[in-house]
């Protein structure tokens, strides 16, 4: 049996109950929201990862990661590798395109280097690309491989090989040039020395009156003889003077004849086109004339044949058909 309570207590108790129910309802809503927070955070992380992946694909980073670098075998010259070592740069028309990974010697005695080539640079390296080993600062610095841009067939990147040459060292070239100049100049200097000695000897001989030239300088006999010869020559020319006049007269007359002939030729020249025209016309008439002559001959032959056929002249009346064959007697063994 439940003791009866007073109505004030019952009313207070009812208010408490309503308040308790209200508080419980509020608590249960807050708990529901807390329960889904982790899922929302996870979803956000996944979305961020997705966006990152999409950006990476779009930027081509994955493509680059997935595509391995090309391997290029560089056959090094037999004269030496020019200081090339692993880690050296490989450039294509001045742009960094890869790195030398190994420098090796194969059993045949050939030296070769293996370089990793940036996939972006691969289309520019072709079968006709030339590899040159250069020094970074012409005469000093690290060695690197410079590849020329190829325009021929594309390279087979399963086994890509290029042959390298060493860029000549300018210092070596200068040394060789100096040695060459020395080789050529020294004999010239020797010759000049010998010539000077000869000149000295000749000058000494001249001074002492040796030889023809020396005699000329020291002895005036030859000069006097020359003077006498010139005098005689003048006399001879004076004697020839009248004859020269006669010869000149003849030459003048001949020239006047030639001039006269030229005048005649000049006068005849205007007639040449007419003569040529006449000759051309006459020549053009020749084929027709020949044809006429042939026709006349044939007509004459026909007439003779007909005359032979006349019974008055002893013929049979009807002309024989023309015999086309030559006599069998002319078929000689």
């Amino acid at each position: 049996m439940t003791p009866e309570r007073p109505p004030e207590l019952q009313a207070e108790r009812a208010r408490d109950t309503v308040a308790a129910e209200a508080i419980a309802g509020h608590r249960s809503g807050r708990l529901t929201r807390r329960r889904y927070t982790d899922e929302w955070v996870g979803l956000l992380v996944l979305a961020a990862i997705g966006v990152f992946a999409a950006a990476a694909i779009e930027a081509g980073i994955l493509h680059n990661w997935l595509q391995p670098p090309g391997r290029l075998h560089i056959l090094l010259p037999q004269t030496g590798v020019g200081g090339l070592s692993p880690g050296a740069d490989v450039e294509v028309f001045g742009i960094h395109a890869g790195t030398v990974r190994h420098v090796r010697l194969n059993p045949d005695g050939e030296t070769w280097a293996e370089a990793e080539i940036d996939p972006q640079a691969e289309p520019f390296i072709r079968r006709d690309s030339a590899a040159t080993i250069k020094l970074r600062y012409a005469v000093a610095g690290a060695a690197y491989v410079s590849l020329s841009r190829g325009k021929g067939e594309p390279m087979d990147w399963h086994y890509a090989v290029v042959k390298a040459t060493t860029d000549p060292n300018p210092v070596d070239m200068i040394t060789a040039t100096i040695a060459d100049i020395r080789t050529h100049v020294l004999p010239i200097l020797d010759n000049a020395q010998a010539m000077t000695a000869s000149l000295k000897a000749v000058a000494a001989d001249l001074q002492q009156g040796r030889g023809s030239a020396g005699k000329l300088l020291t002895d005036d006999t030859l000069i006097r003889q020359a003077e006498a010869t010139v005098t005689k020559l003048q006399d001879t020319i004076a004697k020839l003077q009248p004859q020269i006049g006669s010869v000149l007269d003849h030459a003048n007359r001949t020239m006047s004849n030639v001039q006269s002939a030229s005048r005649d030729l000049k006068a005849a020249t205007p007639q040449l086109p007419a003569i040529t025209r006449n000759a051309r016309d006459a020549t053009a008439e020749l084929p027709a004339l020949l044809l006429q002559a042939q026709a006349t001959t044939h007509d004459l032959q026909g007439l003779i044949t007909q005359l032979r056929g006349l019974w008055l002249l002893g013929g049979g009346g009807t002309p024989k058909p023309a015999d086309h064959r030559i006599s069998p007697a002319q078929v000689a063994p």
Partner: peptide, 15 residues
Amino acid sequence: CASHPAPPQDDAMEV
């Protein structure tokens, strides 16, 4: 007394 005409022929060939 003219004889019969000769058979037709190619004059250039005959010549």
